[in-house]
C-alpha cells in the first residue's frame, strides 16, 4: 500500500485533499470567466472571420476580408485610414496617460502632505467625479468651453480660434476631457504609494549630494513605481478603447478606434469588421503593455 504524504498547511492534510479543495474554491470564478469571457472571446474571433450579408446579417462563410480592410486593402486600392485610426488611438492613450501621470505626482504629494483630517476631504474631491455619469461629465465641458466663458475667450485672444466659437471640437478638448476622466485612476493608486513613502531614502539621497532630479529618480520613483504601474495600466488600456469623449469633444473628424468599433456594431451593422478591429485593438494594447513593462524595468535600473 502506498503511503500518503501528510503535509502541514495550517492543519494536517494530504496533497490530494488540498488540490480538491482548492479546485472547489476556484471553480465558481473559473466557470464565470469561462462562460462570460473566454467563450464570447472565442466567438468573437470566429465572427471576425465571417462575412457580412447584404442586409448586415452574419453569414458564416470564412473570409479574411475584415482583416484586409483593417490593413487598408479595399476595392479602391490601399488607404491607411484604419491603421491611422489605430495609431492615433495609441497616441491619444499615451499622451493622456503621460499628462495624467505628470499631474498626479504633485497632486498625490499634496494630498499625502495634508493633515490626516483634511486628507480624506481631498481624496473625496478626487473621487467625486465618479459619482456622475461620464457622458454627463463630458457634456459639462460643452458648457465650460462655450464662447462666453474665459477659457474660450483666452484661446480667442491668443488667436487659436475665431471669436464667438466654442473651444470644441478639437484635439485640445479631447485631451481635456480624457485627462479629466482618467486622472483619478492614476491619482488614487499613486497616492497609496506616496502615503507609504520612506522619507529617509529621500533624505539619504539629499544627504548624498543628489540634484532634485536625482532625488526623484532614485528615491521617489522606485518607491512609487508599484502605484504608478497600476495607474498607468488603469488609464492606458481603457483610454485606448474610449469613444464617448472623443466622439463628443473631438467631433466627427477625430475618430478613434473606440468610435470605429462602436460604429461597426451600431450604424454600419458590420459585425465581422467590428470584431476584427476589436481584436486589432486588443493585440495593440498587449504590445503596448509589453513595451511598457520592458521600458519600465529599464527606467528603474538607470
Amino acid at each position: 500500500m502506498e503511503k500518503k504524504r501528510i503535509l502541514w498547511r495550517g492543519e494536517l492534510t494530504t496533497q490530494r485533499s488540498l488540490s480538491i479543495r482548492g479546485l472547489f474554491c476556484l471553480s465558481s470564478g473559473i466557470s464565470w470567466l469561462m462562460f462570460f469571457l473566454m467563450l464570447p472571446g472565442l466567438l468573437f474571433v470566429a465572427v471576425s472571420f465571417a462575412t457580412r450579408g447584404d442586409h448586415g446579417e452574419l453569414v458564416w462563410q470564412f473570409s479574411l476580408e475584415s482583416y484586409e480592410r483593417l490593413m487598408g486593402f479595399s476595392l479602391f486600392g490601399w488607404t491607411p485610414d484604419y491603421l491611422l485610426i489605430l495609431w492615433r488611438s495609441v497616441e491619444v492613450a499615451f499622451i493622456t496617460t503621460l499628462i495624467a501621470v505628470l499631474l498626479s505626482y504633485p497632486l498625490s504629494f499634496f494630498i499625502a502632505s495634508r493633515p490626516a483630517k483634511s486628507r480624506y476631504m481631498w481624496l473625496t474631491l478626487v473621487i467625486v467625479p465618479f459619482w456622475t455619469n461620464m457622458v454627463i461629465r463630458t457634456y459639462a465641458w460643452f458648457y465650460l468651453l462655450s464662447p462666453d466663458l474665459p477659457l474660450a475667450k483666452l484661446a480667442c485672444a491668443l488667436g487659436f480660434i475665431p471669436e464667438g466659437t466654442p473651444l470644441y471640437p478639437n484635439v485640445f478638448a479631447v485631451y481635456l476631457g480624457m485627462v479629466t476622466v482618467f486622472l483619478p485612476f492614476v491619482v488614487l493608486p499613486l497616492y497609496s504609494s506616496v502615503e507609504r513613502l520612506d522619507w529617509s531614502l529621500v533624505e539619504a539621497a539629499q544627504d548624498l549630494y543628489s540634484s532634485r532630479m536625482r532625488v526623484f529618480m532614485q528615491a521617489i520613483l522606485p518607491q512609487t513605481a508599484p502605484g504608478l504601474a497600476v495607474g498607468i495600466i488603469l488609464t492606458f488600456v481603457p483610454a485606448m478603447a474610449t469613444f464617448v469623449v472623443p466622439d463628443l469633444l473631438g467631433g466627427a473628424k477625430y475618430m478613434l478606434v473606440g468610435n470605429l468599433i462602436q460604429q461597426q456594431f451600431g450604424a454600419s451593422r458590420d459585425w465581422p469588421f467590428g470584431a476584427a478591429v476589436s481584436l486589432g485593438l486588443m493585440i495593440l494594447t498587449m504590445i503596448s503593455l509589453q513595451i511598457y513593462s520592458r521600458k519600465g524595468k529599464e527606467i528603474e535600473i538607470v
Binding site: 529617509s200 533624505e203 539619504a204 544627504d207 535600473i301
Partner: peptide, 13 residues
C-alpha cells in the same frame, strides 16, 4: 557632512 541613518536608508533597487 554625511549621515548614517537609523534605518540605514539603503537604496533597495
Amino acid at each position: 557632512v554625511n549621515m548614517v541613518f537609523q534605518s540605514y536608508a539603503l537604496f533597495p533597487h
